[in-house]
Design a protein around this nucleic acid. Structure first.
Lengths: 175, 175
DNA sequence: AGGGGCATGTAAGCTGTTACATGATTTT
DNA sequence: AAAATCATGTAACAGCTTACATGCCCCT
C-alpha cells in the first residue's frame, strides 16, 4: 500500500523520503500512519523496479536524495487505482465486538475514551478541512483536488457517524 | 490481531480451527477477513504461549483438534481489550484520495462499482442483522450480546454513510 | 465416480513494526 | 550548550497472503 502512496505523491513533484513522510502525515495521516522504517525500504523497492529514479542532491550538506517518478511507476500506480476494492480490517470494531467481556466500569471507561478520541479527531480534521478549503480558493484549478477534499469530508462524516453510534450505545445501555 | 479474535471466540466454547474460521466469517467477517494460512499458525503461537491447550478429538476420522482457552489466554485477551485504540488503515479512502489521477470515465466507473459493492454489502449485513435479532429473541440473556449486535448496526450505518457520501460526490461532480 | 464440504497444515514471499544507529543543522 | 528537527538508513522480528499439499466423508 505504501508503495502506491509514494508513487501517487511523486506524481505531483519529485521529493525526498523525508518530505514524502511529512506529506503523508499531513494529508492521509488520519487514516494511514507510517514510519521511516517502512518508508525507506519501500523507496528502495520502487527504485529496484525502476518505478522511480534517485538523485543525490548536490550542494546540500544533509545528503538528501530526490526521488522522481518514472513512466513505469505511473503505469503501476494507475493500475492500482483501477483494481477492485477489498474491505479492510477495523480494529476498533473488533474491540467493541468483544466488549461484553469487560465489566461495566471498564466498558464505560473504554467507550468514553473512544468518544473523546473521536471528538478530538473530528476537530483536527475540521481544522485541516478549513485550511485546505482556504488553499483551494487561491488556486486556479481547484477541481483537480476535488477528491482530496472529498476524503476529508468523508473523514468528518465518518467521525460523526461513529459519534452518533457511540452515543446511542451508551444511552441505550443506561436504560 | 487474529490471535486476539481467536482468544475472544474461544471464551464462548472450545472450538477447532475450522470452526473458528467459520465463526469469524459469519460474525466479524464483514470487516475482518482471514484464511487458514494465517489461522493455523496463529493457533500454533497461542499454543506455544500456553494461552490455549489442544486436544485431538478421539473417535473422529478427520483428525480434528479442539482448542480450549487457558487462564493466561484470557488475561492476554482482556489486556488487549483495555489497550488504547489506534487508527487503522483504510485502502478505500486512499484510492479515492488519488482518484483525481484517472480520467472522467474511469473515475465514474470506479465510483459506480464502489457504490454497487456497498449496496450489496449493506444488504448482506441487514440479512445477518435480522438473523441475529431472531436468535437473540430465543435466549434468556440477550443483553450479554449487546455489543455484537451493536457492531452489526455500526456496519449498516457505516455503509449508509458511505453511500450518502458517494452519492454526494457523484452528484456534485456532475454539476 | 465425482464434487463439495470438512479438516489440517506448510512454504515462499512480502510488508510492516520497533528499536537502534548516525550525523548535520537550526533553534532556543 | 542543549534540544529539536532534518535526513537516511539497518536489523530483528512479526504477521499476513497466496498457493500448494493431503486426505476423509457425504451426497447424488
Amino acid at each position: 500500500m505504501l508503495e502506491h502512496i509514494l508513487l501517487g505523491l511523486l506524481r505531483e513533484q519529485p521529493m525526498t523520503g523525508y518530505e514524502l513522510k511529512k506529506t503523508i502525515d499531513s494529508t492521509v495521516g488520519f487514516f494511514y500512519r507510517t514510519s521511516f522504517g517502512s518508508l525507506y525500504p519501500a523507496l528502495r523497492r520502487l527504485e529496484e523496479k525502476e518505478y522511480v529514479i534517485v538523485e543525490e542532491v548536490k550542494g546540500d550538506s544533509k545528503n538528501k536524495k530526490m526521488y522522481t517518478l518514472q513512466k513505469d511507476g505511473e503505469v503501476a500506480f494507475v493500475e492500482w487505482l483501477k483494481q477492485p476494492l477489498k474491505s479492510s480490517k477495523n480494529e476498533h470494531l473488533l474491540r467493541i465486538f468483544f466488549l461484553d467481556y469487560l465489566d461495566e466500569e471498564k466498558q464505560n471507561f473504554l467507550l468514553k475514551e473512544y468518544q473523546n478520541k473521536l471528538k478530538s479527531e473530528r476537530h483536527k480534521l475540521k481544522e485541516v478541512e478549513k485550511i485546505v478549503i482556504g488553499e483551494l480558493e487561491g488556486i486556479t484549478n481547484p477541481q483537480d483536488f476535488y477528491y482530496r477534499l472529498s476524503v476529508l469530508q468523508y473523514g468528518v462524516r465518518h467521525f460523526e457517524m461513529e459519534l452518533d453510534w457511540l452515543e446511542d450505545i451508551i444511552r441505550r445501555k443506561d436504560v
